[in-house]
Design a protein around this nucleic acid. Structure first.
Length: 892
DNA sequence: GGATGTACGTA
DNA sequence: CGTACGTACATCCG
């Protein structure tokens, strides 16, 4: 068999190459936004892609060490003992690299008690015997011994991993002067500093090569050691045990027991969705394109079944053939498939350029496509099924609920939503992509249309097939969901879907003219401030450009440097306020005012643009948009409408009630997070504070400063308030001092005094983090979980960020749970009592309603009751209700 | 045109 | 060196 006809097996030493990459690329140039270092991953993958392109291997595997310990360290405790601590910036990268490789469907292997090189040696040997052309990629010189006519070593040079030197048999002989299999004997004599294996004193490569060539082998050399003259001869005789030990240790094991042989390592198609997800997280843009390009060149993104699982898992059920159905046939099928409305079916809508295009409906082993042509076939049975409580499993059900509403169809019986369930399982990731879920939970590849192709060569799958996958995902995800999260899904999140859907459909009425007038006045004001600012500095600059501001402030005006940012020095409001104190300049004030009004003007403009034809703004809530359990709002975001300043509140005033209604009602929880802290910590002082019903910060201030509540000064109250709120965020003394603009010592003292009085709060917060470290996750009062893998990260920034987030999550998350439960109760009461008043908006701890004529009293009662009793805590839940003609007025 | 960084609005 | 978000702009890149 000629070499070119042979299959090529590429074997990579993962740790060794990743480590080389780590030192070849600057650590600081490869950091994600949240502080994860990625230089080793980037370097490794970049090298691997080059190899795949150049060598076109048919078979591929990457081997990793499991730990520093192996049978070698047991034989010689100091093996590799000189290696310092692995840099923390490197350690966290290996698991991520393994994830990236998994997404690319590349096999990774490791074996307890062995090193990666032993795995390579085993696979290389078996590959050679099976007729492969073998390429070994490693930065460990021990692998030289593997080289022969069929096995070639690719070894990184000093410059890193981008260039690999090719060692075939001839190259080894040329470089080292011995046959490859003799190289470990040279190494045994010379020693290997990096492995902490001292050799024979005074023996270097030259001598060793001479000896081995002269005697043929280490064994013969040692047998004839008496013949060697001089000091080196004496050293050899005195230290022969070193050489023997070295030789034992540097011999790679060629018969490690492995679950896979070379034939199992055939390259498999990559999963574009999974690759995209992992690479997005690593913020690898160019690499992503390279991977996708290579894959499409090789034609390995096709919907080929993924690599077979190592241990035989149950086989993949065959995808049912999609049948298109309408009319009576569909009616019969629906009734039979749903067993008269008791068995869940998968449901997935299809959207075309002009809206709803069709339905995919599936059972475990059947899938049906229903084209949507309004008014033509008989859809009565379908409509009945959709509107009935007959259970449906869907993905992103809220969007579909709304789409159905738009064509006049009702949807009930949302029994499962795979997007929501997957989010509950891992709330820190986005799960809107069905293909990613299919890969993550079923290990299969759902073909996607290529977004880079104008005219996709590959059609996405039928919605019917997607519906079938959704049904299969339900089982796969439900299996992995703990009881608490399952309850949250069933009792909170799924019932909330139609509630949120209706709120979005309803929208909120906005005073268009009022907004326009406000916008004009803000633009005029912005122009005024800008021109005054330009007068002061004598020229015009772009006030919105941080770069130009830096140039002006720090170079031309020579102001003291502020907080450093990635691109220079900060010009944010806090920094400018600092500057105003240290180096007063009229420009600073004008700039700040300009910022204020332009920001508000932007908000006004954005809102104006999003007013729909019905004169209302319809935001979209993202039910899976946060890691804590809150919902987020977008297009436009109605959860960040200004409230703090007078002008800001005028924007709020533009939100009003629509025709047929008489006012707006707002209801908000007061200090819900502090109440949850009181409940969770059981702190007697804090619980008493809330049960007293007195102003919280005044009460706490009185305790801390040892005065009576009426003697708490505004300054004292401000400090206490900042401290209380900061607690739930993991605030440090440093942060507190910065916020209150007081000395760190004073902040420290404040914290100390606080915890003297409210020690249980501190104990609770500490315990949350400690418990999370053990469990790997935190939990809300209702059992909503959030995993925190970074609590064990060697990267300090990541770890400490995780600690603060872990501390905050049960508090913020429990508050979110409570609000959601209240919303469900209110929605249910409104329906049951057939009220016309409507819930419009949710802003985390606040709800806004549109009050129908004559319903104010009933609505107020419902809202107060449902919000106040959404959870039974050891402190009361206080609800503030207000009404008015607009959002601002109602809030007073 | 898309990604990134900075800044800033809310709870 | 305080949690959780979304949006807009300037800027850089290809």
């Amino acid at each position: 068999m000629s070499d070119s006809a042979k299959p090529t097996l590429l074997l990579v030493d993962g740790h060794s190459l990743a480590f080389r990459a780590f030192y070849a690329l600057p650590v600081d140039s490869f950091v994600t936004r949240d502080g994860q270092h990625t230089n080793a991953i980037h370097g490794f993958l970049s090298m691997l892609l080059l190899l795949l392109q150049k060598e076109r291997p048919t078979h591929l595997a990457v081997a990793f060490d499991i730990s520093r310990y192996s049978f070698r360290t047991r034989e010689y405790a100091d093996y590799k003992g000189t290696r310092g601590e692995t840099p923390p910036e490197f350690m966290g990268q290996v698991p991520l690299l393994e994830e990236a490789l998994a997404a690319m469907n590349i096999r990774t292997l490791s074996k307890e008690d062995y090193e990666a090189d032993d795995i390579l040696a085993t696979l290389a040997t078996r590959g050679k015997d099976a007729g492969y052309n073998v390429l070994v990629v490693s930065g460990d010189r021990d692998t030289i011994q593997l080289v022969d006519d069929d096995i070639t070593l690719l070894y990184p040079n000093a410059r890193g991993v981008s260039e690999l030197k090719r060692y075939d048999r001839d190259a080894v002989v040329e470089r080292y002067g011995v046959e490859p299999h003799q190289y470990p004997e040279i190494a045994a004599l010379v020693g290997e500093t990096s492995d902490n294996l001292p050799g024979i004193d005074k023996v270097g490569e030259k001598t060793a090569v001479k000896w081995i060539n002269q005697y043929g082998s280490l064994e013969n050399l040692l047998a004839s050691a008496d013949e060697i003259k001089g000091v080196v001869g004496q050293n050899l005789r005195d230290q022969r045990d070193r050489a023997e030990r070295n030789r034992r240790l540097n011999r790679l094991v060629r018969d490690v027991e492995l679950p896979l042989g070379p034939d199992d390592l055939a390259r498999a198609p990559i999963n574009p969705a999974a690759v995209r997800a992992v690479f997005d997280r690593l913020q690898f843009r160019t690499l992503l394109e390279r991977v996708l390009k290579l894959a499409s060149e090789e034609g390995v993104t096709d919907a080929v079944a993924p690599i077979a699982p190592v241990d035989d898992a149950p086989g993949i059920p065959p995808t049912p053939v999609v049948r298109t159905m309408v009319d009576e046939e569909l009616a019969l099928w629906l009734d039979r498939a749903s067993a008269g409305g008791t068995t869940p079916l998968g449901l997935q809508l299809e959207f075309g350029p002009s809206g709803l295009a069709g339905f995919g409906i599936a059972t475990q082993d059947d899938s049906v496509y229903v084209p949507w042509a309004p008014g033509r076939p008989d859809y009565a049975a379908l409509e009945r099924w959709l509107a009935s409580a007959s259970p449906k499993a869907m993905h992103a059900s809220k969007r579909q609920y709304k789409a159905l509403d738009a064509v006049g169809l009702a949807l009930n019986g949302i029994m499962y939503d795979t997007m929501i369930a997957a989010w509950l399982l891992r709330p820190s990731f986005k799960h809107d992509d069905l293909a990613t879920l299919v890969y993550d939970h079923l290990g299969e590849t759902l073909p996607e249309g290529d977004p880079n192709q104008l005219l996709p060569e590959q059609e996405g799958v039928s919605p019917a097939t997607e519906a079938w996958y959704i049904l299969r995902l339900v089982d796969a995800i439900a299996d992995r969901l703990d009881d608490g999260s399952t309850r949250v899904a069933r009792e909170i999140e799924l019932p909330l879907v139609p509630v949120l859907g209706r709120m979005e459909l309803t929208g909120v009425s906005v005073d268009r003219d009022g907004l326009r007038a406000l916008g004009s006045s803000l633009s005029a004001s912005a122009a005024d401030h800008a021109s005054s600012a330009f007068d002061v500095i004598g020229r015009e600059i772009n006030l919105g450009s941080p770069k130009q501001l830096q140039q002006l402030l720090f170079e031309e005006l020579g102001m003291p440097k502020t907080r450093a940012t990635k691109t220079g020095y900060s010009t944010d409001a806090a920094s400018l306020a600092d500057l105003q104190e240290k180096a007063p300049h009229p420009f600073l004030g004008l700039l700040l005012q300009h910022r204020d009004v332009t920001k508000l003007n932007q908000i006004v403009e954005t809102l104006e643009k999003s007013i729909a034809d019905d004169g209302r703004i319809h935001t979209t809530y993202d039910q899976t948009g946060t890691s804590t359990g809150r919902i987020s709002s977008n297009d436009p975001n109605l959860q960040n409408i200004p409230v703090k300043t007078e002008v800001g509140r005028r924007i709020r005033s533009a939100f009003t009630y629509g025709e047929g209604f008489e006012s707006l009602l707002t209801a908000d929880y007061s200090q819900i997070e502090m109440r949850i802290m009181a409940h969770l910590s059981g702190d007697p002082g804090l619980i008493e504070a809330f049960n007293e019903g007195e102003d919280l910060h005044r009460f706490v201030g009185a305790r801390i400063f040892g005065v009576s509540p009426e003697d708490v000064t505004p300054t004292m109250r401000t400090k206490v308030k900042a401290m209380s709120y900061g607690l739930a965020y993991g605030l440090s003394a440093f942060g507190l001092s910065k916020q209150l603009r007081i000395e760190t010592a004073e902040a420290k003292q404040l914290m100390t005094d606080y915890f003297v009085r409210f020690g249980a709060v501190r104990d609770y917060l500490r315990n949350v983090v400690e418990q999370a470290r053990v469990d790997g996750y935190t939990e809300t009062i209702f059992g909503r979980r959030r995993p925190f893998p970074d609590l064990h990260s060697p990267n300090r920034v990541l770890r400490e960020n995780a600690e603060r987030a872990a501390l905050n999550s049960p508090i913020q998350g429990s508050a979110a749970d409570i609000m959601k439960i209240a919303m469900l109760g209110i929605d249910s009461d409104l329906n049951e009592q057939q009220l016309s008043s409507r819930m419009l908006l949710q802003v985390h701890d606040e709800l806004i309603f549109e009050v129908a004529p004559g319903e104010l009293e009933t609505l107020t009662e419902i809202v107060r009751t449902r919000m106040g009793s959404a959870a039974q805590l050891s402190v009361p839940l206080d609800v503030q209700v207000g009404t008015g003609t607009d959002w601002d007025a109602a809030a007073h």
